[in-house]
Amino acid sequence: MLQAVESRESVGSTLRDDYLKAYRFMVLSRILDEKLASLYRGGKIHGGVFLGKGQEALSVALGLALQKGDVYAPLIRDGAGRLAFGEPIIDALRTYLGSALGPMRGRDGNVHRGRPREGYLAMISHLGAMISVVNGTLMAKRFKKITGVVGAAVIGEGGTSTGAFHEAVNQAAVEKLPLVLVIANNQYAYSTPSSRQFACSNLTNKAVGYGITAHHVDGTDLLACLNTLSAAVKQAREGGGPQMVVAKLLRLCGHGEHDDAHYIDPRLKNSPIGRDCIKVAEDYLLQQTWADEGAIQQIRQDAAQKIDDALTIVQREPTPDPFRENWCALASRHLSDSFEGPGNNVQ
């Protein structure tokens, strides 16, 4: 969690420093995404690759607003938030490339990674399911009389249609938990447009029904995201109950790298929500003279170097060995069922 430590020390630093730090994570995430896409096209990755292009500003703003002791349940497009929360670059590469040394050791892959005992939850695929799990961590902290912590869960607009979403938001409201629920309305759930997903004028309307506070933010604007997410996290931390943050933006990639996203309406691409948040951030950095072209280029080069260094390590690491796998799903190994019939012993 070295990067998280660094982020904590930023408290009290200038807006310029916060913005630049966030921008660095965004660039790191984007270049990591591009590297993953290239590894995927090169046949080096088994299974899918899911990128966060267009969602980096929102994602990083949440990751930076969280502190050690908080709980974070990112979703599939939260590469930037994961890095900002403290996930080492190598964890992403190890999981995507199936290294036996990664946190998931080849047992799970791609975006399904985390370190739950460190407050970094490993998502399951079923949307909405992580929110109540975050609630449970917060209930446990309350039992243990740990105060001043928040739990954050991220979901897309598609995930708001699930029963699990409804149950969990209502549960957080009933229990008055310090939950920060970030909804990235990126206009498409795989190929389904938001018009086929919900009928309210704005997803923040849902917060009214649950009796919780809502915030709305332009997800393409890093400054707005930093301000809104830090305010929402602060409110939750200070006892304001669950906070819903709805960000409007556009997914600038396919659902996964297998998807060419031909269905995305070109009018959306050319609208303000179709802006690339990284380009918006760069323009702002230049406009504020917080960075010049050379500094931006240097940030990109540094990011690429870090990723290449990690990749060099991971590519030499062993992949999981089925003969060394213990094939036991239980922590209580002595309670494993035995399927030692002659038919099941055939390898």
């Binding site: 739950p116 109540s132 799990v133 209930m139 446990a140």
Partner: peptide, 28 residues
């Protein structure tokens, strides 16, 4: 007191919360 808690009629969220609490070291 405080350790036997009424839940909403939300079986998914009940189990989800139990998982989260277990991750934090509780035994729900």
């Amino acid at each position: 007191p405080g350790r036997v808690i009424d839940s909403p009629i939300s079986e998914d969220a009940m189990v989800g919360a139990a998982i989260g609490a277990a991750i934090e070291g509780m035994r729900p």
